[in-house]
Design a protein around this nucleic acid. Structure first.
Lengths: 232, 232
DNA sequence: TTGATGTATTGATATATGTCATTATATTTG
DNA sequence: CAAATATAATGACATATATCAATACATCAA
């Protein structure tokens, strides 16, 4: 590591990678930089758990993380797959100071933790940052509404189609894509049993809509898959 | 109407009824008061429609409103029943300026509309108001997560139980309660067909968990209903 | 290599839920 | 008032989906 890499490390380096801190001036960035705690997580490690106190603002800088609600009978519902640089924040921050979902690294990951006092003071003192934060929260909310419709009004093929399109377009941004998500995870993303998820994937494969090789997926017939997503 | 009632009308009157404007000073309240447009809706009338531009902040002062996502095949998913004084705001305000769900009066209602420029400037200039707004958005988000679990991981009896408890505790705050919601609405709240909703209600009735008389519901065995909600 | 463990896959079966058709009950309209 | 319309309720049936059991496959440790 040379002097240059040394220099751009920290929040300033993150600033160059993502727009989430665009609204912060150097002083504010330095303020976060000073407070932040960098933590490394191995794949499969829990980052925070639903039901525990939410004391920090969390920003993912490397790796990938799944956020999921732990429901009944050991069933999980995966809400999103987060990739860097993006923050992972729950509604508890401005409500009851609790985590309402869990977060787990699905790849080796690095996250920065900043105490909420610092975070909230930035929100209070920088209206641009506050607005940007509201924008992010809103976008997440919009995605949640889409998820509602997918999960409650579409049948299994439509839901699996949604998951595949989400992974291709939003998470891996490539086709084919390789994922560290298990079949159980795919099932937890689409609200069904893993056996059902596997069956639908096989059907898609038989119909030459996708190609599956272990954990590598390729969407062959995007049009058809979109149609399945639309028609439910 | 005497001079006194005249005096307390407008946003100041609302301030007394709800905490949502507690953070605003008199000047700010007057600012809203000047800009606001009061609109009366009859039961069944559409207040705003999913997919149309979201140009106003909306505050319900009288009546009741259902917010719902319009999905596929003319199926709706009711997100919440809003009662006064509460605002009805969508994530579009800080994202794409569109409505992502529809709102319909289920009783004769009155709402105040304030243009977004005014609203956003209040958020920018009053950190307390911004924080309170974030708190509200967060609470809604938390409720949405509970809804996710109810809708995706519980079977029909559990979902109907959740709807009944929601109406009793959060909407009407009484037992028995009378509702203007149709059986179709109850079905749209629990993500099932209206026939299924009716069947479950009958089962609850047969088991003496609830009493039903048209649109009047009384929860007789709260403990049992809670248990059904828990066990899914 | 071998066994051991976890994950993926498949098939058979049970069950939850939706759909369709029909009747009953309200509610509105002329 | 009766007729007309909307909503509610019920039953028979179809089907989507979960569950259970068995097997295949991959990964890892010894």
């Amino acid at each position: 590591m040379n002097q240059y890499t040394q220099y751009v490390k920290g929040c300033s380096a993150c600033k160059d990678k993502a727009e989430i801190f665009n609204c912060l001036c150097q002083t504010e960035l330095d303020q976060i930089d000073e407070k932040r705690i960098e933590v490394h997580f191995k794949a499969g490690e829990l980052i925070f758990k639903q039901g525990t106190p939410n004391m920090h603002f969390l920003c993912l800088t490397q790796g990938k993380v799944k956020t999921y609600i732990e429901g009944y009978n050991d069933k999980n519902l995966i809400l999103s797959i987060v990739k860097p640089v993006e923050y992972i924040l729950g509604p508890g921050i401005y409500a009851d100071q609790m985590h309402h979902f869990s977060a787990m690294a699905i790849e080796d990951s690095v996250a920065c933790l900043v105490d909420l006092v610092t975070f909230k003071s930035l929100i209070r003192n920088n209206p641009d940052f506050a607005e940007d934060f509201l924008r992010k929260v809103s976008l997440q909310s919009i995605y949640n509404y889409e998820l509602f419709i997918s999960l409650t009004q579409k049948q299994m093929p439509g839901r699996i189609a949604d998951v595949l399109l989400y992974l291709k377009d939003k998470v891996y941004e490539s086709n084919p894509f390789h994922t560290s998500l298990s079949r159980q995870d795919l099932a937890d993303m689409s609200g069904m049993s893993k056996e059902s998820a596997i069956r639908i994937l096989r059907e898609f494969k038989d119909e030459k809509i996708i190609q599956v090789n272990g954990n590598t997926f390729e969407i062959l017939n995007s049009e058809h898959l979109n149609k399945i997503s639309q028609t439910g």
